[in-house]
Design a binder for these strands. Structure first.
Lengths: 149, 149
DNA sequence: TGATATCGTGAAGGTACTTCACGGTGCAGG
DNA sequence: CCTGCACCGTGAAGTACCTTCACGATATCA
């Protein structure tokens, strides 16, 4: 009984580790890091944002966002524009290059999904998704929150 | 078709994020970090080990292990003993306090498994585990490897 | 207008990683 | 025996991610 649950946790933990490794290495090949990429995705989803908004969305300190944006700006993936009404704030905006890169990455993500789940019959896949949804619900209740997607 | 697979990937990714957050915060409450704890677990599984063996097992550089062991030694969780036959090497050994702590953490892990998977009927749990096993197999083929459990 | 909150960033610090260089040691082979 | 090479662990230097605290500039509200 409990063994099966621990087995499930172990599987999930191992998936976590391997997936993290895969993400880190494939992003590194593109000259990116996980943290910076997360910011990029958020920008793509939300459009030009203040650094404060990004900090809240990612669940990190505002100071940290300054550093991440510094790196992304230096890589030419992001620009700092003046906020139209609030002169304290800056609007972080994706460059066309970043947009292209993100589109490419979305394709890569679909490819990964295909590789990982392609062999599973639809019913098992559905079972997996719904089981993970229940787990996610419990998990969300456990974790004090931090970001959104 | 592809949508369901991407949905599955998204679920797995989100579980990864939340679980990582949970681990990090609960370990921090115990004055530990993920990296150091991984080393501790490895020591518990393998017994006293040289730093080189730990580096290989964790998939990190030997230099990094030096730093991790430094921190753990300072926290009184680990000691450096001379290797009985090889004077170049040192044997990293768990202190009784670390053993107790690890036992406690194992209980915590069982509790987490219970909380996350307790509501799932056995058949769905089995389905989850076997699906994750298949995914893990594909994942292992994808990732250049690094550590063991 | 003046107190107060907010935006972004400098300064300082901690952890987790890396590579490179180097001293100490183990282990053959000549 | 002793020389050369491989291996162990660590100092030095560097990168990335993250934090808190302090501060100047700006917005806001009474």
């Amino acid at each position: 009984m409990a063994d099966a649950r621990i087995a499930a946790l172990d599987r999930v933990l191992e998936v976590t580790v391997l997936l993290g490794r895969d993400m880190t290495t494939s992003l590194a090949a593109a000259g990116l890091t996980v943290a910076r990429t997360t910011l990029l995705w958020r920008l793509r989803a939300a459009g030009p944002s203040t650094q404060r908004a990004l900090a809240d969305a990612l669940g990190v300190s505002a100071r940290n966002v300054t550093g991440l944006v510094d790196g992304l700006a230096e890589a030419g993936l992001v620009t700092r524009e003046p906020h139209p009404t609030d002169r304290r704030a800056t609007l972080v905006t994706l460059t066309p290059r970043a947009e292209a890169l993100l589109t490419e990455m979305a394709a890569g993500r679909a490819g990964l999904a295909e590789q990982l789940f392609g062999g599973l019959p639809p019913e098992r896949l559905d079972g997996l998704v719904s089981a993970l949804d229940e787990v996610l619900e419990r998990l969300r209740a456990l974790v004090p929150d931090g970001a959104a997607s």
